[in-house]
Nucleic acid binder design. Structure first.
Lengths: 150, 150
DNA sequence: ACCCACATTGACGTTTACGTAAACGTTAAC
DNA sequence: GTTAACGTTTACGTAAACGTCAATGTGGGT
């Protein structure tokens, strides 16, 4: 899958945009999130982001940037773009009608259950690999080797 | 009709094998794990499971069954089959050589880091959707509606 | 005016993870 | 002995998520 998290190129690890009114070029966002411009355009084709245009060029707001980050986090969690679109929609659906709110509540709870299932899977794997680590470290120590000397 | 009663077609989700020496048919495993036989054969083509053969037919041991479960959990976590294969290999690599053990340790730790990154993503999303839930519940209550009456 | 880096839109190619027939063998039941 | 339920291989099809040209436009610096 290879959806690595942002490498935090500089010390600017802050997830908060420096300036709320800043605008970003496609290449800029691509660099920051370690994806290609092609990917970002593809997400637009799929209706996941809708940047402003200056003529033909795309201009991304801080909101667009955050949205892209959200999308990529969804990807890292293994959701398809279709699912991510649905999830994003949950934040923007009409919250006035009673039925809509009930529906929103229902979907949110379903999604939370899904996420908690995943966390159980995740914790199980983490446990297994920590066991491996523990065993290997013990074995190495027994052989008189320091496990942490590179 | 067979001698015994039908095995309750509903999803028997018990993760513990009834009998360690039991053998399973491909359809049986497919039902239990809610995948198609095609999927299981595909995993075999990819070198992820190697069941015994009785003539041309595949016979799955309890170990094969567990392995399949492991693979599918990996999938749920969003790993590709190639990655899953690598991870499975980590349990079977030669643990005698010093360099191999160092390498195993290194990879395990890398994988654990990866998993913990994912858990951070996961917890973040869970938090967001729990916020949504909380807000919607509050809003519904304020309108004098019970959020949990279906 | 020219160059260069970056932008755009098609359009076709690629990988992954299977689905979907087709054509066939095996065993058990009736 | 035929049918039904299950298994097999081989092979082509497909949806998702981009990659990779190609052809073209555009804005800024010198």
């Amino acid at each position: 899958m290879s959806v690595a998290a942002p490498p935090a190129a500089s010390a600017a690890k802050s997830s908060a945009p420096r300036d709320l009114s800043r605008i970003y070029s496609i290449a800029e966002l691509a660099r920051e999130f370690a994806v290609t411009p092609r990917t970002i355009r593809f997400y637009e084709d799929e209706g996941l982001i809708k940047p402003r245009r200056q003529g033909t060029q795309r201009l991304y707001s801080a909101g667009d940037r955050a949205r892209l980050g959200w999308i990529l986090r969804g990807k890292r969690l293994g959701f398809s773009l279709a699912e991510i679109r649905q999830l994003l929609d949950l934040y923007h659906v009409d919250r006035t009608g009673l039925q809509q709110m009930r529906e929103l509540l229902r979907r949110s709870r379903l999604h939370i259950e899904e996420l908690e299932r995943r966390r159980r899977d995740l914790d199980a794997q983490i446990g297994e690999f920590k066991d491996v680590e523990t065993q290997v470290v013990a074995e190495l120590r027994q052989r008189g080797v320091d496990p942490d000397s590179d």
